[in-house]
């Protein structure tokens, strides 16, 4: 098939290329998962209730027949045991200091009477001022916090080559940083962002940032993220946009290596799988589950095949399960593949 295109065709190809590069939607996965699982459990309960009703009807009939034939009557059956439904319990955490490794997605950080300082070693540290609360939306190479109304957070983020290593969500506003020191305050309908060092990108959630606030500047933004003011306003660079590509219209060439976003997604997915294996193969005994810390090494072959290695190694059953599941994932086909690693904390 020929790839010869008209000028309109080439223009369409170009805008398609740009549309493909639009970052994935910014979804609050913790909240979505929580709501979804509640609905799933409700459906499961409804199904079981229907089954219990049907079975109960059949049993009642059988019991009636039995009673009729075997007087005196047997005592009526007691109510069935209450159903235990697994819930993802979000924890409320407080205290003067916390380590980032102790956090889980969905945790609520509470600085009710005094400041709460959280440190993610080598990544970032932040302080929630007294009276503030925030929820942990994402952890790992990208830490995402969602501030609650009235909260104030002071953050210091270690500079990184990776984009958006630290994100604060406030109402519909998103403040994303690379490496900097800044403060975000939710003041009713307005959100104040003050930057001491570096640069932060600010904009509505789920969209490209609209402002850049640099060291020494401050900005006031509406909670819907649509309007705002900063002393020196410029359009911010996209947080995760790949470098500008050429205007070529030929079929896409094989990339040299997986994109950063691909690698991050694969690490996310592999992390989920490893966690699943750990939960399955490390049983809770007397209410206690051990935890393990390891480094997941992910090799992404040029053909997209994935391999996993763990340092230090995990228990054989966990490692076997994790390797098998990770190898079932598929990465993008590239010229040379890639390798990446991520620290994992498994268990509570």
């Amino acid at each position: 098939m020929t790839t010869e295109r008209s000028t309109e065709g080439r223009a369409l190809d170009r805008v398609l290329e740009e549309a493909r590069e639009v970052p994935a939607p910014d979804v609050d996965w913790a909240r979505l998962e929580s709501t979804l699982m509640q609905r799933v459990h409700a459906q499961q309960r409804a199904r079981k209730s229907r089954a219990v009703l049907l079975m109960g009807g059949a049993l009642a009939l059988a019991a009636a027949v039995a009673i009729w034939f075997t007087r005196p009557a047997a005592p009526p059956a007691g109510p069935h045991a209450p159903e235990v439904v697994a819930q993802t319990a979000a924890r409320d955490l407080s205290g003067p200091e916390l380590s980032g490794t102790a956090l889980e997605v969905g945790d609520r950080l509470l600085a009710s009477g005094r400041e709460l300082r959280v440190t993610h070693e080598g990544h970032s540290s932040y302080t929630l001022l007294a009276g503030s609360a925030a929820r942990v939306v994402s952890l790992g190479e990208r830490v995402v916090l969602s501030l609650e109304r009235g909260a104030t957070i002071d953050a210091s983020v270690v500079p990184s080559a990776r984009p958006e290593t630290f994100v604060v969500e406030v109402a519909n506003l998103r403040v994303a940083v690379h490496g900097t020191e800044f403060r975000v305050v939710w003041l009713g309908d307005q959100i104040a962002v003050d930057v001491r060092e570096g640069v932060v990108a600010v904009g509505p959630r789920g969209e490209l940032p609209s402002w850049r606030v640099t060291a020494g500047e401050g900005g006031m933004f509406a909670a819907d993220g649509k309007t705002g003011q900063v002393s020196s306003r410029v359009t911010a660079e996209p947080p995760a946009a790949p470098p500008p590509s050429g205007l070529g219209v030929a079929p896409p060439k094989l990339p040299e290596a997986p994109s950063e976003q691909d690698v991050a997604t694969l690490l996310d997915r592999a992390g989920v799988l490893v966690t699943g294996c750990f939960e399955e193969h490390v049983p809770v005994e007397s209410g206690v589950r051990v935890s393990a810390r390891t480094s997941l090494g992910l090799s992404i072959g040029a053909d997209g095949r994935l391999g996993a290695a763990f340092d230090p190694p995990l228990a054989p059953a966990v490692e076997q399960c994790a390797r098998r599941r990770v190898s079932a994932l598929k990465g993008p086909v590239t010229k040379q593949g890639a390798e990446a690693s991520r620290a994992l904390l498994l268990g509570p």
């Binding site: 994935a24 979804v27 979804l36 799933v40 996310d268």
Partner: peptide
């Protein structure tokens, strides 16, 4: 439901991208 949760986590990003 644990398996369902895992399935959700594995595919949610792809689904979200297509939905958007």
């Amino acid at each position: 439901t644990v398996a369902f949760r895992e399935l959700f986590r594995l595919h949610r990003a792809d689904v979200a991208r297509l939905v958007q």
